[in-house]
Amino acid sequence: MIESLLEPFTYNYMTNAILVSALVGGTCAFLSSYLILKGWALMGDALAHSIVPGVALAYILGLPYVIGAFFAGALAASSIMFVKKITRLKEDTILGLVFTTFFAFGLLLVSIKPTAIDLQAIILGNILAVSDSDIVQLVFICTTCLILLILKWRDFMAIFFDENHARTIALPVGRLKILFFALLSAATVSALQTVGACLVIAMVITPGATAYLLTERFHKMIILSVFIGTTTSALGAYLSYFLNTNPGGLIVTLQTFIFIVIFFLAPKHGVFAQRRIMRKQSNNSALPYGDNITSLPVDNQSIFSTNTGEQK
């Protein structure tokens, strides 16, 4: 029994896949805590799509595709910021505008040189099929991201909470924002390989959204989110061995499952908790009234009985 449970670990590629998935899942989850608070949830999706032309171009030029992806992502993010600064268009409009443009350009490139690129690998991703050199890249990217995030999480929090105040205390807001987008692009590229372009968005939203239901302090939210992201990703990769499924689909399904459980059970913001609070409130307001009902009749009876007794 135990032997069969440990069986995936006897294969090198499985062990690698599980560990790398955990690392990627943790990094994306860290970023998700920020994204969901800023209403930037779709940013991850936008970046994942924007990366496609970069990947295509890198394939055509024979460069490691992480580099192409990263530059395309950075370019997309900075165009989004640039357009936002100049016009008054809403963020979602700009996101939609920029990422469809990039994605269209990517498809164009792919159709020009169709054989050079395995588009399936980009769109669906499969951590079980990632080469060793890619794994080295992934580990390097994610570790760097995590270190930078751990060093700067408070500064990012200050900016995401109150950008104007961050300026008055002389945080380098512009530079930190660029750093954040660079980290996000890097994490998106990594997630691309584990779960594919379509599911990246789940990796950078769901863990944060789940953690948000559980706490009112930001550092706890990050810790919970990273925990959820790491465990679900590792577990997803591990289970895919037995179920013989696409690991990306499994990881995201697990994350959603946890979200649903928390959604009902969370101590303060969950469905049941809110019901409980409502009930408690109505009980509280009914309390003095209830007391009267139970005590009054007794008193009245005794009063009446003595009264009537005396009168008689």
Binding site: L37, F161, H165, I169, T215, E216, F218, M221
Partner: peptide
Amino acid sequence: IDWDFPILVEDVVMTGRYG
């Protein structure tokens, strides 16, 4: 600002100390 941000009063005041 986003009033639903998961941050406590004392954490907000602490950001004033960052400098």
